Computed example of a mutant assay.
Amino acid sequence: MTAAAPRTVRVVAALIPGPLDAQRFLVQQRLPGGSRALLWEFPGGKVESGETDEAALARECREELDVELAVGRRLSQVRHVYPDLTVELVLYAARLVSGEPKPLGAHALAFQSPEEMRALPFCEADIPFLDELVAGRLGPFD
C-alpha cells in the first residue's frame, strides 16, 4: 500500500527591503506550536481560491504584518515537498507603502542582511531564495 501524496498549496512570499537599508530584508519567525515552528521565512502566505498571487500577498501582509505593500515582479519560484505538504512557493519583489511591520501572525520579525539570514534556521522551502539572494541573483523592487 502506497502512502497518499501530500496536499499541494500555492504560497506567495515577499522580498521586502528595509526602509532605512535596502540591503536588509524583512523575515519572520513562525509561531511556536504549529508546523515548522520557530523557523524563519520570507513573509507571505497561502493563495486562496480565485485570488491572484499579488492580491494574496497584499492580503497576507495586511493581516499578518499590518502593512500595505506594493507588489512588484515575480523573482523566483520553487516547489518543495515536506512530509505533510507540497509547497509551490513564489517570491515577489515588494516594498512597504504604509505601516510599520508588526508580528501579528509571527513570533518575531527582523530586517536582516542575506549574510545574517544564513545564521537563522530557515524553512527548507525558503532556502533556495536565500541562496539566490546571497549570490546576488535577486534584483530589487521594480
Rank of each mutant, 00 (worst) to 15 (best):
M1G: 15
M1A: 14
A4Q: 12
T8Y: 03
V9I: 14
R10H: 15
R10W: 12
R10Y: 13
V11F: 01
V12P: 06
V12R: 06
A13S: 14
A14C: 04
A14K: 04
L15S: 10
P17Q: 06
P17D: 13
L20K: 09
D21H: 04
R24P: 01
Q28M: 14
Q29E: 13
L31F: 09
P32W: 02
G33M: 05
S35E: 15
S35G: 13
R36L: 14
R36G: 09
L38N: 10
L39P: 07
W40E: 11
F42G: 05
F42K: 08
F42N: 03
F42H: 03
P43I: 11
P43V: 12
P43D: 11
G44C: 10
K46V: 01
V47K: 05
V47G: 03
V47D: 02
E48Q: 12
G50W: 03
D53P: 04
E54M: 01
E54G: 04
A55K: 15
A55S: 12
A56T: 14
A58Y: 11
A58S: 15
A58E: 15
R59M: 03
E60A: 15
R62H: 05
E63G: 02
E63L: 10
V67H: 07
E68S: 07
L69A: 04
G72A: 04
G72S: 03
R73F: 10
R74N: 11
L75N: 02
S76C: 11
S76D: 14
S76K: 08
V78M: 04
R79D: 02
R79F: 06
H80K: 07
H80Q: 09
P83I: 07
T86Q: 14
V87C: 09
V87G: 11
V87M: 02
E88T: 07
L89K: 15
L91G: 03
Y92T: 06
A93G: 13
R95K: 09
R95F: 00
R95M: 04
R95L: 05
L96V: 13
V97Q: 10
S98I: 13
E100T: 15
P101Q: 10
K102T: 15
P103H: 02
P103Q: 06
L104H: 06
L104P: 09
G105E: 01
G105A: 05
G105H: 00
H107R: 10
Q112E: 02
P114I: 04
E116Q: 13
E116G: 03
E116I: 11
M117C: 14
M117D: 07
R118E: 11
A119G: 08
P121I: 06
P121Q: 13
F122L: 05
F122G: 00
F122Q: 08
F122I: 02
C123F: 06
I127M: 12
P128I: 11
P128D: 07
F129A: 05
F129E: 07
V134T: 07
A135W: 12
A135N: 08
G136P: 13
L138I: 10
L138V: 10
G139S: 00
P140G: 12
F141I: 10
